[in-house]
Design a protein around this nucleic acid. Structure first.
Lengths: 247, 247
DNA sequence: GCCCCTACGTGTCCTAGCGTACAGACGCCG
DNA sequence: CGGCGTCTGTACGCTAGGACACGTAGGGGC
């Protein structure tokens, strides 16, 4: 039985060959990631990259007027802090913990060192970035063309896929701020989904009862993001000693 | 006097050190890029990366229902085909020539070879990708929160910045499909801008008369994208022999 | 110089989602 | 067990933008 928290719960880390993983392992610092924690803000200088294991992080933009919306989410399939290795150091977006959990962080210079070796880490990070770009693109198009209810379904499914259980700990207010819509809009759409029997919720908890219902109601964007993520990481193999968890 | 078309008109190519540039120069194939040309489609396998010099390319998404919207534009500041070096080979988005012009293309394997050397090309491409990500993020937020008129101004300005003149050859229909809105919406907003004296247009031509007016009407997204692009490429120096054009 | 295609203008109706306001209700904490 | 803060429900009017429909005019091609 593996320990309760292991870097291998993060898919990127689990896919590193033994040699690369060993080099990094002792520098991977386990961190708790409480709800609402801000990993970085628009102007700030990042010092670490974060590899979530059970936490989910939301990347989003805040407009001048204070309105905000999520452009992508990051769970145990990815890493927060791509601007470190892309070369910009900072980004104009911010990263906030959306579902409390755990993760590992790696110091900036160590990440860069490993990235610059040009091995599997280099390859994995770029692949993952490509998947992230897809997600951002899809969000842009989705924001333009799809209904609030479709977007809510998409978002619930994407979040669900990153969770071990079928229950999200999440107020409607928070969901609304993720999607960049009014809270009342979520109340209404969530009400529809509950009446349809797809979900059930109570004060800050949303349980998914019928996944297929959400999938049918969601726009194509969910499937597109999912498919692309699978495609990009399909030829990635997990380390022998990592498979027990990472699968 | 430099020749009328030169790879140095593309900022990325102009920033390559002499050695790297020389390696690629003989493989850079000049291509005409006519309006509407499709550089790649969602499923397709890309064979070349394109470095626009005078053309402008639009990256966009088409939804199942046929609605589409641009997520980012690429002019002589960048390159079309980042998925080649990011490792995915394809993307679910498509790339269409939005303003006719010229460019250079480079065969896939040669690009990869140069990228994998880990020199300036590697660095420039990743930096540029980072800027592209910013643009996509901003578009996502902008689609959600800003008015059609603001978005039109943003788009006009971004396009203008990639052009030598102050006139866009562009129908309202085409602009509408870029922004993912109805043609009538563009007619109305463009009418407002014309009445305000910021632009003047006639059948497929849009002339910008008062840039500052557009800047004042546009949302912050324009400035944000611009600023980030400048920041990311600020420490990039153009080759001596390239500066006459690339500046 | 004529035609006709294509681009642009306008108008009417309709709906999704916002702003605002307030009422109920869950459940934590003392 | 009672109170209050935080979540959720509902209801109003309002507006931007979509769908559709048609009229008009610029200008390239012949």
């Amino acid at each position: 039985m593996p320990p309760p928290h292991s870097p291998n719960q993060n898919h990127l880390l689990a896919a590193l060959p033994t040699a690369e993983f060993e080099r990094l392992a002792k520098h991977l610092e386990p961190v708790a990631m409480p709800l609402g924690q801000i990993l970085y803000e628009p102007g700030g200088q990042m010092q670490h990259a974060y590899f979530p294991t059970t936490a989910i992080v939301s990347l989003h933009y805040v407009t001048e007027s204070g309105a905000s919306s999520e452009t992508a989410g990051v769970g145990n399939e990815g890493v927060v802090g791509i601007s470190l290795f892309m070369g910009g150091d900072t980004t104009p977006s911010s990263a906030v913990v959306q579902t409390a959990g755990h993760g590992y962080r790696l110091e900036r210079s160590l990440l860069m060192q490993e990235f610059n070796r040009g091995g599997m880490m280099h390859r994995l990070l770029l692949r993952y970035t490509q998947a992230l770009i897809t997600q951002m693109n899809q969000t842009a198009a989705c924001n333009r063309h799809h209904s609030l209810e479709q977007q809510l379904c998409r978002w619930l499914l994407l979040t669900l896929d990153r969770l071990p259980s079928n229950e999200l700990v999440m107020t409607q207010e928070l969901v609304a701020s993720m999607l960049g819509v009014r809270r009342e809009g979520i109340t209404e759409s969530a009400g529809n989904l509950q009446r349809a029997g797809f979900i059930r919720y109570r004060r800050g908890h949303i349980a998914v009862l019928e996944r297929s219902g959400l999938e049918a109601t969601a726009c194509e964007c969910y499937a597109a993001v999912k498919k692309e993520l699978t495609r990009l990481l399909s030829d990635v193999r997990y380390r022998q000693d990592a498979t027990t968890i990472a699968a």
